[in-house]
Nucleic acid binder design. Structure first.
Length: 595
RNA sequence: GGCCCCAUAGUUCAAGGGAUAGAACGGAAGUUUCCUAAACUUCAGAUUCAGGUUCGAGUCCUGGUGGGGCUACCA
């Protein structure tokens, strides 16, 4: 419709004022609720052509459109806005299509024949996942779903930073103070156990620094020369030399961590198509750097370290290989990117990584381009904002880091408490109930995080932020459950809901409003792709739900005036439920049959 | 110091240069003999400041203030 209108407006302006208009000047928008009409054309841009007042220009164009577009039955102009009134038949026909089309709003999977790679999660193996990772995972997973719904082939990938000094710290602490403990013996998730040893290292290390300072060393020197740190570096070198004892320990402790991560991923409901490991990709990175060095794209300093000079691009010099030949983060990322292009020949690669790494990705893209990879331009850093607590940033030192597992189970506990207080599920088995609590608790958490524009920082108050009323996941889930309940009741009464419709009567205003909102779904799915933000899906689901709740409140579905209306309302409910389910599905949020 | 990002009701979030800036929570007041009241209805309440561009600015530009990030041979 929008396309037809755009063309017709062009025609109108040409026939009325003999001028060609640029499509960009044709602004069509939803008519604001406070005015009569369905679609609004902003006429200000045409005043220069018409040389007439806004109202008059609007009327002239309106007349032309009404005569030439059969779906338009009327119009009004208010200052520079031409509000077009569409025939109800236009909306009910559209509704007919939705009833019939189970894939309404989605393009066929892979129909574009283009692959998008989405990297998200990217944990270090020395600590458990926390709230920041949750935001990262949810954004990455939702985006993957959104791309898929828009016809792309999607590969979800994870890059695990499994090597480096931070893991050595945990390993060393375990050797020194672990007394052979394992996750099984400790009764603890492996990622948590390894994280504990990381903390232990930092504590002991700090004591040593303090001791050295008291003995008269300056701070810098103390930081560098503390025996524990020296030992950790020694361990890193032994790891890089491939010493069996170290490699075995490394494998063992990492496997604990992976088991723990898997559990967290599973309870969050995210998954990956492929997991890359930096212990693997850093070698590729080094090769890339060395060969670029040969081609003199990079240069070597006297101490043997390898650098790239990005001063022409307005940046600095950046180190790529240390003087001892070991690699840095950037080197690994070069290797990872290269391997991924080899694996998938992606059309686009999205890195879901926090905005504190903006500079890093700017360098990465420039560097790949300089080295000569034509796909460098296809890399996009989805730079999401920090999650902060009411009192500021999460700080591990102050113990304010919100653990992912803890948060998830707290959410489920809250859902359990609320549900049991309401007592609506008393007839269900424990297992059924637990499943519903899980769906609601996670729904609350995921929706709360995803409704915020990823690019913005957000504040998360673990105690107060998460509601189950208002603009929340459970609110939307509740509406879905009510719809399902009505449909069950209809089935019990032997009312069949056909999957075709031909509405011959005039629906009421609220019903038309609902249809209009439902009709927006395909555009919303596209917008989420273009803007790369799940937030537009979340906001849409909320708006749709609110609209449905008003309809549900104002009109009876099962006790409608006549059969025709009853069937129509059931279909309207069914389609709404389906769109809610699909929309929430794009966010990775499940919807319960009852709650 | 240099570079980048952000600033909207008491609070947490919306608003592709377009109409009277939307919600939610919290506050005040209502709705249930009726399909799930985790719902619905009503009221009060906001664009950090100073300029500029534009027919039109929360949105674009310049500057100030306030907050965050980056600026490692860390990741």
């Amino acid at each position: 419709m929008e396309k037809i209108l755009t063309d017709k407006v062009k025609e109108a302006v040409f026939s009325l004022y003999n001028r060609q208009v640029d499509e960009k000047q044709i602004q069509l928008q939803k008519t604001s609720k406070d005015f009569a009409g369905d679609i609004t054309l902003v006429v200000f841009p045409f005043l220069g052509f018409s040389k007439k007042k806004p109202e008059e220009t609007g009327k002239e164009i309106g007349n032309y459109l009404q005569e030439n577009v059969k779906e338009i039955t009327g119009f009004n102009t208010i200052s520079g806005f031409l509000n077009l009134v569409m025939d109800n038949k236009y909306w009910t026909d559209l509704f007919g299509k939705m009833v019939n089309d189970r894939d309404f709003g989605f393009k066929k999977k892979g129909s574009l024949n283009k692959t998008i790679l989405v990297e998200f999660s990217s944990p270090n193996t020395n600590k458990p996942l926390h709230l920041g990772h949750i935001r990262n995972n949810l954004i990455g997973y939702a985006l993957s779903k959104i791309f898929e719904a828009n016809g792309y082939r999607v590969k979800k990938v994870n890059i695990v930073n499994d090597r480096g000094i931070h893991i050595c710290k945990s390993m060393l602490a375990w050797q020194k103070w672990g007394e052979g403990i394992t996750p099984e013996k400790a009764g603890k998730k492996g990622d948590k156990l390894v994280g504990d040893f990381y903390v232990k290292f930092e504590q002991e290390y700090k004591k040593q620094i303090q001791f050295l300072i008291e003995k008269g060393a300056n701070k810098d020197k103390a930081v560098r020369s503390a025996p524990l740190m020296k030992e950790a570096h020694k361990m890193l070198r032994r790891w890089e030399d491939g010493e069996q004892e170290i490699i075995d320990l490394w494998n063992r402790m990492n496997s604990w961590v992976y088991k723990g991560f898997d559990k967290t991923y599973k309870s969050l409901g995210v998954s990956f198509d492929k997991i890359y490991y930096e212990s693997d990709t850093y070698k590729t990175g080094r090769e890339i750097v060395l060969s670029a060095l040969e081609k003199e794209i990079l240069f070597k300093k006297e101490d043997g370290s390898v650098w790239v000079d990005l001063s022409e691009e307005g940046l600095d010099e950046k180190v790529l290989l240390r003087s001892d030949g070991t690699t840095v983060y950037m080197t690994q990322d070069l290797g990872t990117a290269f391997q991924r292009y080899n694996d998938y020949e992606f059309f686009r690669q999205i890195y879901v990584v926090g905005n504190e790494q903006n500079y890093h990705f700017q360098v990465l893209v420039l560097l790949l381009d300089k080295i000569g990879y034509k796909w460098a331009k296809d890399i996009y850093h989805l730079s999401y904002g920090m999650v902060e607590l009411p009192e500021g940033k999460m700080k591990s030192r102050e113990g304010t880091v919100v653990d992912a597992d803890d948060l998830i189970s707290e959410m489920i506990d809250t859902a359990r408490d609320m549900s049991e207080e309401l007592g609506k599920l008393d007839t269900y088995s424990e297992k059924q109930k637990e499943d519903i609590f899980r769906i609601i608790g996670l729904g609350a958490l995921k929706y709360f995080i995803l409704k915020v524009d990823p690019r913005k920082n957000m504040i998360f108050n673990p105690k107060e932020s998460i509601d189950f009323n208002g603009n929340t996941g459970p609110f939307i889930q509740y509406t879905y459950a009510r719809i399902k309940s009505v449909i069950r009741k209809a089935t019990e009464k032997n009312i069949k809901i056909p999957d075709k419709t031909d509405v011959r009567f005039e629906p009421n205003k609220k019903e038309i409003e609902l249809i209009k909102l439902l009709a927006e779904f395909p555009k919303i799915v596209q917008d989420a792709d273009f803007q790369m933000t799940p937030a537009v899906i979340a906001n849409y689901c909320y708006e749709l739900t609110k609209e449905f709740n008003q309809f549900y409140h104002d009109f009876s579905i099962l006790n409608a005036e006549d059969d025709e209306t009853r069937i129509f309302r059931l279909q309207l409910s069914e389609v709404t439920g389906r769109i809610i389910e699909k929309g929430m599905g794009l966010l990775g949020i499940e919807v319960p049959e009852r709650m």
